[in-house]
Nucleic acid binder design. Structure first.
Length: 832
DNA sequence: AACACGTCGGTTTTT
DNA sequence: CCGACGTGTT
């Protein structure tokens, strides 16, 4: 049975036993550059982790020689958990983490070479924005012309592309000014000893690029570099990988670097808006002369109706690397499509449907509602709340982002790094201690004049203001003295009480939750220490790497390295390392910035899961509702005008569909409240891209836009079976009879649902019949319709909203761009 | 220094 | 419509 043994003469490796042929060949690839195209639900994480385990087991790598990079902490954690389940190996000896987490580790190790203070702090996006606002105020920058948000976006974008201010191409005066601000911002950060997320990456990249001994050390060290979600890497991250793999410097010996295994799915690239470049996949194949490309197309998640829908949809995209998911499961149930008269009624229908699912034995946490934009959650939340169904919304404020937590962290950061002006400003007068804006402005001017931090400038500030602020600084200094030698838990505890934060929130009327959160911070500090093992061994990260694998009693999976690799393990110290190790407090602060934590709302409960399609990536559920399937919403109006935007929307839809294991609902609404106005949306074009045989229309399928309202040549493609989609139903009916099973375990669900048709389903009640579309017919326009305007010429209707005299249309004109026109005024002629 | 009022904006998100 | 943010008032 075992076609692939791990080594000649050896017993077959249990690691490979449960893999399919595709997966196995990926896991056992030679130590060369390779690209794995891993479709949704194809066992990608499994392949990655098994690959690492296999390399270690075969003696082809030592823990210290492996680097595995992910985008999210969740993915990194998952990888470590699974790995330690496979092998008795100290996962912390490997460099497994997020891009930013690993860069942080790298920069801490080489802070001197990177020109950073030992105590450098990490700015999250909030911190970055307030740092930029502070800078703008300081230099009297017109925030009308240069909104801080936009500057932040500009700076982050430059860094993602690997550009320092001097490298930014300057087209116009506006850009020129932005670049100057970028430069000032850089100086400010350097002065304060803080780095933003982009800086972690960029600084690491530059250090590798400019410091040959360090670069060569890591190139020799990491024999295997594995990258997850490669389609989401940005330009800088790719360049960083090239540096580590010995492909970054012209003329450098390309055999020095390790083997890069990139795993990704071009069809799931949904982060172009934050700099992700799918093109990195093709570049990788070319620049690394990749010889091994493996496609994982076997899907273990969904029934084939769902998969067929996904495949057909994504087939409408051009320039794909090409991949088709298949499953050995049966067709399963058809994809259900529902049209509601209003967003309110859409939510109501969902609640009814969910009640039925739960009655039939589906766990609530196995039901997910996906939407394109966060604003859509409100109406659904209201419906769920009124129905007393527990739910959890993803994507809210996370633990370390809460104001009270950020305040506490600011005090802690000042203990580490008194020059962190962002933290200084955050808490200098919080809790209030009579230090007003006037005083701090004086201080800031003084600091600017002498080019030093606020902390240093205090001594030069005289008068009442000076005394007050000096008092604050003294308090911090005392606290710093007091906490020396204490354990982290005690430090945090002391700081939240001595700072006055606890007292402040205790006396506040609505402060109970915040007090609770502050107490939770103390617990978080304690469990962080436990997890990181600071208690047992205060040694730093590098010390862990020298741990001998042989010392761990590995039994049959012995990891004893051969002589040559062990010799290498003994010599892991990189050139120019800072001998010092970060304190538990420093590590905790970095942890807080790099991993903002969960949003704590009702975590753990069995609740319906509400989230955007973006945040659903990587997750899976038995039942999925994709809501608001409307033109302008999904695909989103801002992404509809160009092909790339539309294709990304389609990939997003592809991600959404492939989240569902057994049952998938797609719904849209004729009307929707958005920004206080009722909008009339057409159903999404994505419906036209799904195979009819996979679908089951729960509501009578409406006539197509073009046929309803006297717009020549209409009605043809759609009028074939105006009812319930008999084709799809017929096929699915057959599959039900032939032993459809819902994941085996939940048979109650099975019997209740299957074979009875859906005649009892709430979705079929006549009360939910769609309302006639009066308003649409009064002006007779439809989204995507071509129209002619006397002044602007020919255009396409993008959006319709309002009714009667208030009706307006957003129209994209070929020559004059996009305009909003009042339909009661504008003279528009439909163009066939 | 806390509160009230007005303005503005409003895809997607992780680090 | 609704929340965030900034300015102005007591």
């Amino acid at each position: 049975m075992f076609l692939f043994t791990d080594a000649p003469g050896d017993a077959p490796s249990p690691l490979l036993a449960t893999l399919n042929a595709e997966q196995r060949s990926a896991v056992t690839l030679p130590a060369e550059h390779a690209l794995i195209l891993a479709g949704a639900g194809s066992g990608k994480t499994r392949v990655l982790t098994t690959r690492i385990a296999w390399l270690l087991h075969q003696g082809l790598a030592t823990p210290g020689g492996i680097m595995a990079v992910t985008f999210t902490n969740k993915a990194a954690k998952e990888m470590m958990t699974r790995l330690s389940g496979m092998l008795p190996v100290n996962v912390r000896a490997m460099w497994i983490g997020t891009f930013h987490g690993l860069c942080n580790r790298f920069l801490r190790t080489h802070c001197k070479a990177a020109n950073l203070p030992l105590t450098f702090q990490i700015l999250d996006m909030q911190d970055q924005l307030s740092a930029i606002k502070r800078l703008c105020k300081q230099y009297a920058i017109d925030d009308e012309r240069f909104p801080p948000k936009e500057l932040q976006w500009f700076i982050a974008g430059c860094k993602e592309d690997g550009m320092r201010p001097a490298a930014v191409p300057v087209r116009d005066a506006l850009t020129q000014k932005k670049v100057e601000i970028y430069q000032l911002y850089e100086e400010q950060c350097q002065r304060e000893g803080v780095v933003d997320f982009g800086e972690l990456m960029l600084r690491s990249y530059e250090l590798l690029r400019d410091n040959a001994p360090i670069r060569e050390h890591y190139q020799r060290r990491f024999r295997h570099i594995l990258i997850d979600e490669f389609q989401d890497t940005n330009k800088l991250q790719y360049a960083w990988i090239k540096m580590l793999a010995g492909k970054g410097v012209e003329g450098e010996d390309h055999h020095t670097g390790g083997a890069v295994l990139a795993v990704g799915d071009d069809d799931q690239s949904i982060y172009a808006f934050r700099g992700a470049r799918v093109g990195n996949m093709a570049d990788f194949v070319r620049e690394f002369a990749v010889q091994h490309q493996i496609k994982l197309e076997q899907n273990y998640r969904s029934y084939s109706n769902i998969l067929d829908a996904a495949n057909a949809l994504i087939g409408h995209n051009s320039r794909r690397l090409g991949k088709n998911l298949r499953t050995e499961q049966g067709p399963g149930e058809p994809v259900r499509v529902y049209e509601a008269p209003s967003d309110f009624s859409e939510a109501q229908w969902m609640v009814d449907e969910m009640r039925q699912l739960v009655r039939d034995g589906v766990e609530r946490k196995e039901i997910a509602v996906l939407y394109r934009s966060n604003a859509q959650s409100r109406v659904i939340e209201t419906a769920l709340f009124n129905a007393a169904i527990p739910y959890r919304v993803y994507g809210g404020l996370r633990f370390f982002e809460r104001a009270e937590i950020k305040h506490a962290l600011a005090y802690l950061r000042l203990l580490e790094n008194p020059n962190d002006d962002t933290s200084f400003m955050r808490v200098v007068n919080f809790p209030a201690r009579g230090i007003g804006a006037r005083s701090t402005e004086q201080l800031q001017d003084l600091a600017k004049a002498s080019g030093c931090s606020l902390h240093h400038a205090v001594s030069a500030l005289s008068g009442r203001a000076g005394a007050a602020i000096a008092g604050f600084v003294a308090k911090i200094d005392v606290l710093r003295e007091q906490t020396i030698g204490l354990n982290l838990r005690t430090i945090v505890s002391l700081v939240i009480s001595e700072s006055g934060l606890l007292e402040h929130y205790r006396t506040e009327r609505e402060g109970a939750d915040r007090v609770e959160n502050l107490e939770e911070l103390v617990n978080a500090a304690e469990s962080f220490v436990m997890q990181e093992g600071f208690g047992r061994d205060a040694s730093g990260l590098e010390a862990e790497l020298t741990q001998s694998p042989a010392s761990q009693g590995l039994g049959s999976l012995d990891l004893v390295a051969d002589a040559s690799t062990r010799a290498y393990e003994d010599n892991l110290e990189a050139p120019g390392e800072t001998g010092e190790t970060p304190s538990p407090l420093a590590a905790f602060l970095a942890h807080a910035a790099l991993e903002a934590g969960d949003n704590m709302a009702q975590a753990g409960q069995d609740a319906i899961q509400l989230m955007t399609v973006h945040s659903a990536k990587g997750l899976e559920f038995d039942c999925v509702f994709i809501t608001g399937m409307e033109e302008g919403l999904f695909p989103h109006e801002n992404a509809m005008s160009d092909r790339d935007g539309l294709e990304e929307e389609r990939r997003l839809m592809y991600v959404a569909i492939t989240r569902a294991r057994a049952r998938l609902y797609l719904s849209h609404s004729q009307t929707r409240m958005l920004h206080g106005q009722t909008r009339f949306n057409l159903k999404s074009r994505f419906f036209d891209e799904l195979p009819e045989v996979c679908l089951k229309w729960l509501t009578p399928k409406r006539q197509p836009a073009t046929s309803a309202y006297a717009l020549g040549g209409a009605g043809r493609a759609w009028s074939d079976d105006g009812g319930y989609g008999s084709g799809g139903y017929g096929r699915s009916g057959a599959s039900h009879g032939s032993g459809y099973s819902y994941g085996g375990a939940s048979s109650a669900y099975n019997s209740a649902r299957v074979g009875q048709g859906d005649s009892a389903s709430p979705s079929q009640r006549s009360a939910d019949a769609p309302v006639p579309r009066k308003d649409a017919s009064s002006h007779g326009l439809q989204v995507r319709q071509k129209v002619f305007h006397g002044k602007f010429g020919e255009g396409t209707v993008l959006t319709l909203e309002g009714a009667g005299d208030d009706a307006r249309a957003q129209i994209s004109f070929a020559r004059h761009g996009t305009k909003w026109l009042a339909l009661s005024v504008a003279k528009l002629t439909p163009v066939p």
